[in-house]
Amino acid sequence: MLKSFAAKAIVPPAIAVTGFVIVCCILLYSVIKTDMLNDTIQHETNLAGTIVKSARFAMLKDDRETLRNIIDNVGQQAGVEQVRIFNKKGVIAFSAHPKELNTIVDKKEPGCIACHAGAVAATSMGRMEQARRFVNEKGKNVIAITAPIYNEPECFNAACHVHTAEQKLLGILDIGLSEEPLQKTLGVLRGRMIVFCIMVLLLAIGGVSALLRRNVLLPISDLTDYVSAVKKGDLDRKAPACRDEIGDLAHSFQDLAEKLKTAQDKLNKPDQPDDTTANRRS
């Protein structure tokens, strides 16, 4: 089957078009996924910044009740899976989940190891390095980001004098959002791209196959039938009519068949003199 003319004409372009469209779609999906993930992390960073700014006054006044309320209210927002503030030693001081209050964050957790991989913890990181993705205890995919709360002149000059000027980092806000909306959007995008791919492939391969079948394969098949019939002795059969090179070839075969028929007729009637013999006699 693969040795047939149809296979030789259709298989290479079909493989080439199918493969290239699939490669491009996978790469496009991967790029869009990365962009959407970056946007989500950017959105989360902005959210963390907003929370830190809205809690700044409460922190300056050392108003722990207000700060606890802010963290609880943010934690109740749909899509927020976790929100907590822990100090430099990793002790969780505020959290939307009361169970983890006063516990110590594991520095080997995926979100912490990036800073704490070396002997001395890194104090500044890029936005993308701060983000981490994991599955929480509820089985939900979470994108979390840690936003450092730096020591500022207003902090170490405040009346409470809890922090010294040498202390660079006061604590860390850790917020995690559910990946569900992102995964849902990516799922819709994936489905649309698959449908688009199938449509492109059907149009490209179907179009090429249909045109080839109509203009090349069927005329060749008709010509093959005609030549087979001639071979079997059916010399009166008409050649298939085509306006292209296949038509010219069919006419040439028909001419040959007609000449063969004339020659056979002459052989079958040997008593009838041909024109040349008659002329010679006269």
Partner: peptide, 15 residues
Amino acid sequence: NFWAVFAAGITILGL
């Protein structure tokens, strides 16, 4: 991007 390289490889080597 694994499947992109795999699809590219299957296409090229198939041809």
